[in-house]
């Protein structure tokens, strides 16, 4: 990203306790304008706590958050004016129709009646709910509620869009549609902050990644850097007719092997260095009388990097 870009979201030394449990431990990161920032972490890592603190819903015990330079805890009116938020599995007011809820949220952002009317139509088209706008939300499916939630987050044409697992409950077609939407928003100069379990999705749409585990940040930076940082080695995948314990044990003892994982008759051999060791590995397998069906070398994916980062973070 450009060096001229200014942080839109600044999280500094954020610490949050739930009773004696430290949910966030000095979490810090910044998100600049135009970034699509993927926030990753296992269940209970502190992703939602971070997001809720960023919105001023939770009071931090230490540290602070700034949205466009304003602390949402102290001044929610200005901090949240240019922000859109789509929560994980949203619970919307079921007595409203989709149009009524969008209209109500538009009012909360101070939009004029005509602007609301136009924006509502535009958003319902955008999220594929144009025929459901006049139906009460109680009649919506989970996926439709999720779509409406994204529309609600966009009602004020926000500069910053914060989403907690935005594509949960959506069908594959909708997931692709929304992925493209987030990329387009980023191209328009908007900042997108999204937490997700779907690493493939993050790898496709995000420019930057933050990883959190047990309340601590283990990485924050460009997605290219995360792959570089956590892919010091390559992986060889071997499919065998039969995998034996002695073979696994022997492979693990090799100097250039970091770890060996087994799934049925497939071996996933993680190498310590970026070297093609397929010849040595096949020799070792033949030495142990193994019948090799296939042998492939590949670079580590975001999922591998993520798992490695979490392991390092522990």
């Amino acid at each position: 990203m450009s060096q001229m870009s200014q942080p839109v979201i600044t999280v500094s030394n954020l610490t949050k306790f739930y009773g004696d449990f430290k949910a966030l431990d000095s979490v810090s990161f910044t998100v600049d304008k135009g970034w699509v920032y993927g926030y990753l972490g296992p269940n209970g890592a502190g992703k939602t706590t971070t997001i809720r603190t960023m919105l001023g819903l939770l009071r931090p015990d230490e540290g602070k958050v700034q949205i466009t330079g304003i602390n949402p805890t102290k001044d929610p009116v200005h901090a949240l004016q240019s922000l859109g938020y789509a929560p994980e599995l949203p619970n919307l007011q079921t007595f409203f129709t989709g149009e009524q809820l969008l209209d109500f949220m538009g009012k909360m952002f101070g939009l004029a009646a005509q602007a609301r009317k136009e924006r509502i139509k535009q958003l319902l088209d955008l999220v594929g709910l144009e025929e459901w706008g006049d139906k009460t939300i109680g009649k919506y499916s989970k996926g439709m509620v999720q779509r409406l939630s994204v529309a609600l987050a966009l009602i004020n044409d926000p500069l910053v869009l914060i989403m907690d697992e935005p594509t949960i409950g959506m069908d594959p077609e909708a997931t692709t549609h929304f992925r493209n939407l987030f990329i387009n928003l980023s191209k328009q100069g908007k900042t997108v902050f999204t937490s997700s379990h779907l690493l493939d999705e993050v790898q496709r749409i995000c420019t930057h990644v933050g990883m959190i585990n047990k309340g601590r940040m283990v990485f924050s930076g460009p997605i290219t850097q995360v792959l570089e940082t956590f892919t010091q080695q390559w992986v060889v995948e071997a499919e065998l007719e039969k995998v034996t314990k002695t073979m696994i044990s022997a492979l693990k003892k090799l100097d250039y092997v970091e770890d060996v994982k087994v799934e049925e008759n497939k071996l996933r051999i993680e190498l310590k260095e970026k070297k093609d060791m397929r010849g040595e590995i096949s020799s070792e397998i033949f030495k142990r009388k193994g019948v090799l069906l296939s042998l492939n070398l590949h670079k580590i994916t975001l999922e591998d990097a993520y798992l490695r980062a979490l392991k390092g973070g522990q």
């Binding site: 809720r52 919105l55 819903l57 929610p76 009116v77 901090a79 938020y85 952002f109």
Partner: peptide, 15 residues
């Protein structure tokens, strides 16, 4: 109870 407080209080309004 309905989880709608999050939606309302994440808008530009003070408590």
């Amino acid at each position: 109870e309905h989880g709608t407080a999050d939606i309302l209080l994440s808008k530009p309004i003070t408590r």
